[in-house]
Every structure is written in structure tokens, then in C-alpha cells.
Amino acid sequence: MALLETRGITVRFGGRTAVDDVGLGVAPGTVTGLIGPNGAGKTTLFNTVTGLQRPTAGRILLDGTDITRLPPARRAHQGLGRTFQRLELFMSLSVRENVRVAGEIHRSGARRNRGAGGGARPDLGRETDRVLELTGLTDIADQDVSGIPTGRARVVELARALMASPRVLLLDEPASGQTEQETGEFGELLLRLAADGLAICLVEHDIPLVMKLCSTVHVLDRGRLLASGTPEQIRADPAVVAAYIGTEEHPR
């Protein structure tokens, strides 16, 4: 059963339709892939799901609740987390502070959204350390975030998103800018997170990575859902190969 679901999502910018009647689901405990050529509407779809972009039509359901009209912050408190294709780190803070402030934001809002307290919660400092450890960032925890390479910065964004205790995690091209080794470790980490019950949706151009991690892959082309299925089915789909995978070796 899908934890996050979009139904008939359509986004139009003036006369151009960026996303056209897209319905897909992301199930807990799995990694779902979203691939497609540039301009296919992947990031627009993410922005719509997270509330940064209002859809022209369609609904977004999180755990059965309609969140289509909620502002981004409220969606975050419902358990929706994301990272950005263009890095959106807090540049004047250190790695540790980036991660910690995410917890602080989460808690300050959670107090209002669910009343005071909420049971015993682990110390924020310890929680930060735990996430840094989990994501393998402990060695650069006290460096300024502006100085670290893109590959690690993507991991910082992931760690930051984890501090808000998400149920669904949307990752926008997390492997771009990472070295092969970093990508490998990142994939391991995502699989471990999914095994803990997180629903992960991944927009990615690194096809081998997507095929390795994902149990379901959706292909977007010019705003429309071209195909959905297991990695094997997608790889064998002639329409997908024609629209996307086949063009990888011969960029337009």
C-alpha cells in the first residue's frame, strides 16, 4: 500500500504543461525511482508534492490524508522530507549545525502541531550525533558546510532531512556530483534507511544506481507517465529505451 500517492497531478505554466495527469505511489520500506529526460517534469512533480508548487489539478495523499492544500511546513510535520537538486544547505553553519537546526526546526513546529511534550525525546545533541554517525559525516562534522565537496554536501542534505523524522523522503538527484565510491556508499545507506521502513523516492540520472536500488521505477517523459514497473520491466520496455535510456549514449 502506498504511503505517498499522487492522483492525476497536472501542473501548467501558462500554456505549457510541465506535469500531465501523473498518478504514482511510493510504498514504505522501498526505494522508488523516478527517471526521465531533462525537462520531463521530475523536479516540478517533487515541488508539487512538497508544496512549493501548486498543482493545476490533482490530489496528493500522504497516508490516506489529502495534503494538496497544506503549506510546505505542515507537510513536513506530516512526515514529508526532501533534498534539493541544487544544493540548499545553510551556508553559514557548520555540518553539525546544519543537521542540528533541522531537529530544532522540527521540534519547535512539532510542539505547536501536536501539543506540548510528546513523551520523552532523546537529547537533540545526541540525536544529531546519531544521524551524523549513521550518514558517515562524523569526520567533517565541525567543518563549515561551504567548504565541503558536492558529494558530501548531498549527504549533509540527507542527514538534515532525516532529523525531521520523515516517513517519506524525496531525493532530487542525490548522486550528481558524487564520486563513484560516494555513490556506492550512498546507495547502501538508502537501502538501510528503506529497510527501517522509510519510503524513499529518488529522481536520478544515474541509471545503474536506480536499477540497483529501486523496486519500482516510474518513467516520466514530457510531463506524462511513460511507464511504471520493476527495473527489469523498464529496461526491457521499448518505449522507455526509445525515449530515454537509448539516448543516453547519444545525447541530443
Binding site: T50, L52, A73, E88, L93, V101
Partner: peptide, 24 residues
């Protein structure tokens, strides 16, 4: 304090702040 860090975070990236649950 946490409040101050949240302010810095909002200044650096409003989008990321909102996506973590900050009511800007």
C-alpha cells in the same frame, strides 16, 4: 540558541527551512 540557528537557516535557504517544517 536554537531560535538563532533557525533564523540563520531561514536566511540561508528559505526553501530548505520550510521543507523541514519551519513556518517562515
Amino acid at each position: 540558541s536554537g531560535y538563532g540557528r533557525r533564523l540563520v537557516a531561514m536566511k540561508d535557504s528559505p526553501a530548505a527551512s520550510a521543507m523541514l517544517g519551519q513556518n517562515l
